[in-house]
Design a protein around this nucleic acid. Sequence first.
DNA 1: TAAGTGATACGC
DNA 2: CGTATCACTTAC
Length: 181
Amino acid sequence: MSEDVLKKSFYDKQTLNVAKKLLGRFLVRKVGKKIIRAKIVETEAYVGADDLACHASKGRTRRTETMYGEAGRAYVYMVYGMYHCLNIVTEQKNFPAAVLIRAVEIDNVPHKETNGPGKLCRFLQIDRKLNGWDVTKGEKLWLEKPAQNIPSKCITAGRRIGIDYAKHCKDYLWRFSIHSK
DNA sequence: TAAGTGATACGC
DNA sequence: CGTATCACTTAC
């Protein structure tokens, strides 16, 4: 496996920092012999049982069990019956936190097809079978270092999307994206 | 702006 | 069991 594969030590840190550092890195998906490399351009952090927007705020259940596990695993779930969302589990074991991958860019693919969490999973053929997958192994699904880091002045923080039910937590600036130019 | 879609969680 | 809700997308 490539030396560029991000290790567990990248993920078991503070979630907000991991979310920012994931920007500009490559999400790599291998299906059969085909490899797709996607640059991450937008992420969101979901941190702990106290974050009302985090699925784990409702307690530890079968669904959220992955988030309580080790850092560097994929947390994949289905929403609205049609779409999957890909998250990467962060922080230490038994602390529920993850980074949602909201948008990516792929060479020769219209941005329209990969600029949403449900759309990028459909394009990369990610579904619940990958829930709990270890993304530090460099097989099937993993993340790689970028050619260069994204300067912090090119990162925009904003409110998270689609979590109006989360009361005061909806105003946290826990969505991060790269602004071009 | 609304509705499709089914897993999930919870109440009975 | 039933039913409400949802970290979304697409078509009006």
